[in-house]
Computed example of a mutant assay.
Amino acid sequence: MERIEHRACFGGWQDVYRHESKVLGCAMNFAVYLPPQAEKERLPVLYWLSGLTCTEQNFITKAGAQRYAAEHGILLVVPDTSPRGDEVADAEGYDLGKGAGFYLNATQEPWARHYRMYDYIVEELPALVEANFPATAARAISGHSMGGHGALTIALKNPGRYRSVSAFSPIVAPTQVPWGEKAFTAYLGEDRASWKAWDATELVKSAPEKLPLLIDQGEGDEFLASQLRPQLLQAAAEAAGHPLQLRLRPGYDHSYYFIASFIGEHVAHHARALRGA
């Protein structure tokens, strides 16, 4: 690993590292916020997954989460949203290819070689973090939009691996909305039955662990009706008896202004699960 950024922040350090990912077959950046408590003890980790077009930079520069991570004594780990590099397949538009990995394992060419963000988030990155930073194996996961989709599906697919999960404006039913249909057709092929393994609304119907889901959704979100449709997950969770708290926020849109407004509540939610505080 190579540390490429190192900035003092709320008594701790906001760092960015670059490493060669064996899973993705390319160099990857990820951000780590080390709160002041990290100098004296090992801390639980909150993983944040960002949305379409983002890198590791968006969350660490716009959300203001470091303040709350320092308050609660939690490491923040923020990966990039897709593989990067000249050899990595890409496409025109913002919603497929680089910046749009959708946190799944692609099976179709030319994507399958590099687009394995699910394995990267679930296995490779935590192993790297827990081996090189003062991190415990207590994990939580959260994200926004495409990253909210990633957080929900990853938590639902891995019972016992995460203490808590939350999301802002998540794509809860990618098999039923244009963003997901475009990406899944490219990454996974035409067999729509195979898509269900990457759809939170489908996964919640038979999830072996009833990990409570916390979702904040702005009612002024320009993508609410066309791409997000949280009522689909809400109905599936109610039918399955899966705990879900869906908080609709009047006036808020899809931006980081929305995330910054409520990220403190989400960090506190995860802190209660991770530290009992």
Rank of each mutant, 00 (worst) to 15 (best):
L188I: 08
L128F: 10
T185H: 06
H266R: 15
I263C: 09
I154D: 11
P243M: 08
I259D: 05
P36F: 02
R113T: 13
H254Y: 03
A38N: 04
G143H: 00
V122D: 03
P178R: 04
P134F: 01
E209Y: 09
L244F: 01
Y162Q: 08
H72L: 05
E87M: 13
A91Q: 02
A131C: 03
A225K: 14
Y120E: 00
E56I: 08
A225Y: 11
E41N: 07
L228S: 05
Y103T: 13
N158I: 00
A277T: 15
C26R: 01
G147Y: 09
A155Q: 11
K22N: 09
R84Y: 00
G218W: 03
A127E: 14
F10E: 15
H242E: 00
H266W: 10
N105A: 02
Q108D: 09
W198M: 08
G93R: 01
G276A: 02
A27Y: 14
S255G: 09
R3D: 03
P35Q: 12
G241D: 06
P243D: 06
R3Y: 03
G150R: 08
H144Q: 15
I141A: 00
Y94F: 11
E87Q: 13
V16S: 10
T107L: 07
I154R: 10
P174M: 13
F102I: 06
S166W: 13
S226M: 05
A27D: 14
K98M: 12
Q108W: 04
D90E: 12
A135D: 00
F30D: 09
A38D: 04
V129H: 08
I171W: 11
R247D: 12
Y120L: 04
R113E: 12
A186S: 15
R7K: 12
D80P: 11
V16Y: 00
I60V: 15
T153Y: 11
A65H: 03
I171Y: 13
Q14V: 05
M117A: 06
G97R: 05
D95C: 05
E202W: 08
P208T: 12
P178D: 02
E92I: 05
W179I: 11
A240Y: 02
I4S: 11
L211H: 09
S255I: 01
